[in-house]
């Protein structure tokens, strides 16, 4: 028993508490100590969620069936909004001789999805090595913490400033263009850096990457060093160790990070305005546009579709990695 104590890995997160030998007894002890029952303990958060999440969600759903008269709302059950959302020009478009051309809203949702996946992939490709380096290569706890905080520094400024800061970097007279000009790589300022897909993706990756570095770092740091030691002793190559041990054990962190980024990016609209110069629309901007002209039912339809898309995405990510089991 004593030996077991010593061999417990003292990682950054610390050892997980041993599960109580007899859960029931612990429970009974807790209730005997007095205090609040479970129902009372969750009551504040349930009330909060009901008031500020469930009720608004229900009202958005109800609104989506109402009719906008331009200067007000007419209660009712109108499926027209959903029809408009899915089909743009009727069932048959005589001019282009096509059936069921997908509406601009579906296309926007598609574009939003595409950007989201691009950025998620880039964040993973860049973020994973960073997290790996922090957790596995940096041996001293002090340095680990210091470098991790360094990663977090951009998060200390406002989100908008992080986006705006890209303008002097990527602009026509920006730092990058000046550098390329000075090095004679280009002879006149290039416009592809800013207000372009390149600039947009770059900014999004920089803004959101911490959201995946964090969780991946924590799940990597939790890996018991003894397991890796054992694998080495048994002759596993570095790649085998990564493939068989480190990567599978880091998956919960990857999944959590990806969910964070996914949810944030799907609802994204400000960066598109600042760094992409508004040259694309996201579901967020569409909702905003319809909100601004007080067509709340149609804004609600867009919001619901966005929510469904988000739910589907999160479910897919959770299907790929069983976080509960892995943790």
């Amino acid at each position: 028993m004593e030996e077991r104590e010593v061999s417990l890995h003292r990682g950054l997160i610390g050892a997980q508490p041993e599960p109580a030998a007899n859960g029931q007894r612990v429970n009974r002890q807790a209730s005997r100590e007095g205090g609040f029952s479970t129902g009372w303990l969750i009551a504040p958060s349930v009330a909060w969620m009901l008031l500020f999440l469930v009720i608004p969600l229900i009202s958005i759903f109800v609104f989506s069936f109402w009719t906008s008269t331009g200067y007000g709302l007419e209660p009712g059950f109108n499926l027209q909004n959903y029809g408009d959302y899915f089909v743009s020009k009727g069932f048959f478009d005589p001019e282009s001789r096509r059936f069921l051309s997908p509406s601009v809203f579906i296309k926007t949702l598609g574009t939003t999805f595409r950007f989201t996946f691009e950025v998620m992939l880039l964040c993973l490709l860049i973020g994973y090595p960073i997290a790996y380096f922090l957790a596995m290569r940096v041996k001293s706890f002090k340095w680990q913490m210091a470098l991790f905080l360094l990663c977090m520094v951009p998060f200390w400024t406002s989100y908008l400033i992080r986006a705006v800061a890209w303008l002097p970097m990527l602009g026509r007279r920006g730092l990058l263009n000046s550098m390329l000009l000075a090095l004679d790589i280009i002879d006149k300022p290039t416009r592809v850096l800013l207000y372009s897909e390149f600039g947009y993706t770059t900014a999004l990756v920089q803004i959101y990457i911490v959201l995946c570095v964090g969780p991946i770092f924590f799940s990597l740091a939790k890996i018991d060093a003894d397991i890796i030691e054992a694998a080495k002793d048994m002759g596993a190559t570095a790649f085998q160790i990564f493939r068989e041990i480190i990567f599978p054990l880091s998956l919960p962190g990857v999944a959590i990070g990806m969910i964070f980024i996914f949810v944030m990016l799907m609802g994204e609209f400000a960066t598109a305005v600042v760094v992409y110069g508004g040259k694309t629309s996201t579901v967020g901007t569409v909702i905003l546009n319809y909100y601004a002209i007080a067509n709340y039912p149609f804004a609600a339809v867009n919001a619901i579709m966005l929510m469904l898309a988000m739910m589907a995405g999160v479910i897919i990510i959770l299907r790929l990695v069983n976080i509960r089991k892995e943790l």
């Binding site: 303008l167 002097p168 007279r173 207000y195 305005v273 040259k279």
Partner: peptide, 25 residues
């Protein structure tokens, strides 16, 4: 026109419109 690359950006706030011209975009 947009596909031809005619537009540099679409601005939404007063400040953006100022920055676009000041920065030479």
């Amino acid at each position: 026109k947009k596909r031809d690359g005619h537009f540099r950006a679409f601005w939404e706030t007063f400040g953006q419109s100022v920055n676009l011209m000041v920065s030479g975009e």
